[in-house]
């Protein structure tokens, strides 16, 4: 009478035990990643948001809440608005320039019959250089304002006076320095992505195009190569846009001079340098956090707009 009931109960406990074990396994595999995510992403984000609503001078403890005043202070500071404008102009220039230049390099390297690996390596090597090192080389030796600087030496060969590359607003040569450093450092990286994508394009497409009478490099490029590079292009544009919005190193190291509040940085101060100064020089962590959230919102907004325009995430082809 009793036996079947006991057996069922036993089976039930066994099943429960198994479930429990599976649960433990599941959580012990998940926990490290989850803990990392909570510890390094979720908590700092919530903490940062609370800070952005606090008057946190020389402290990182939220508590003295002042509502949205940090946000209104920032949005009424002409220098912060200037920094947003600066980064917008920079982004609108550097993203297409990087795109065009790295695509051109990739096509060139891809088309040469011999020595591909050599050129690929040569163009990729600058990616390994740090922004800080490259900025210092640009500021102190290449674009030094003295007559002995390399760029001024070249200028001197044409019989012209030494140019102050950094530090004068008219003409704003410092943009040349900033842009050339960033192009030198990042073009090689995006070139590699383009090269990988170029190798994925089936030869048969080109053969079919040739049979159909598509002649001339330009037609083939426009109707075969570029459409085939669409996915690579979209990701390069997105990565590039985010990287441009987060520009800090070359501005800080080239224009910052002796300290980040040096006079030249006022010529072109990107938002991250502004936030760095507010939070770490002025020690106003509340306003710094608020600035961080404003920039994040802008990056999300621009990424969404760009994604929508380029059809990011949609299935292949339109």
């Amino acid at each position: 009478m009793n036996a079947p009931a006991t057996a069922t109960a036993q089976r039930k406990t066994q099943a429960m035990h198994k479930n429990l074990q599976a649960g433990i396994c599941f959580w012990s595999f998940l926990m490290p990643a989850l803990a990392g995510l909570v510890l390094f992403m979720a908590i700092p984000m919530v903490w940062g948001f609370l800070l952005s609503l606090s008057h946190a001078q020389n402290t990182i403890h939220p508590g003295h809440f002042i509502g949205a005043r940090n946000y209104t202070d920032l949005l009424t500071d002409p220098e912060f608005l200037n920094s947003l404008w600066t980064i917008l102009v920079f982004t609108l220039f550097i993203v297409p320039a990087t795109f065009a230049f790295s695509l051109w390099l990739a096509l060139a390297v891809h088309s040469i019959p011999k020595g591909k690996a050599f050129f690929r390596t040569v163009f990729f090597i600058p990616t390994a250089v740090s922004y800080a090192a490259a900025s210092l080389i640009a500021r102190m030796s290449f674009f030094s304002g003295t007559a002995s600087g390399f760029a001024n030496h070249l200028v001197g060969l044409f019989g012209m006076q030494p140019v102050q590359w950094i530090g004068t607003a008219s003409p704003p040569w410092y943009w040349l320095v900033l842009v050339s450093v960033r192009l030198w450092l990042q073009v090689g990286f995006y070139m590699i992505i383009f090269l990988a994508a170029l190798q994925e394009i089936p030869r048969s497409l080109y053969e079919a195009a040739a049979l159909d009478g598509a002649t001339g490099g330009w037609t083939v490029l426009r109707f075969i190569t570029l459409p085939q590079l669409r996915n690579a292009s979209v990701s390069i544009l997105l990565l590039n846009l985010i990287a441009a919005f987060q520009a800090f190193d070359e501005f800080y190291n080239i224009l910052g001079g002796s300290g980040s509040s040096g006079g030249n940085i006022g010529l072109a101060r990107p938002p991250l340098v502004y936030i760095y100064n507010v939070a770490l020089s002025s020690q106003d962590f509340g306003r710094g956090a608020a600035g961080g959230f404003i920039i994040t919102a802008l990056i999300v907004l621009f990424t969404l707009v760009q994604g929508r325009l380029l059809g990011f995430g949609s299935k292949e082809g339109r």
Binding site: A169, G263, S282
Partner: peptide
């Protein structure tokens, strides 16, 4: 006198000296 004031003043002087 703190760093934030110094930076406000520096910005103004940059605007005067560099941007006229």
């Amino acid at each position: 006198w703190n760093a934030a004031m110094g930076s406000d003043l520096t910005n103004a002087v940059t605007n005067i000296v560099k941007l006229g």
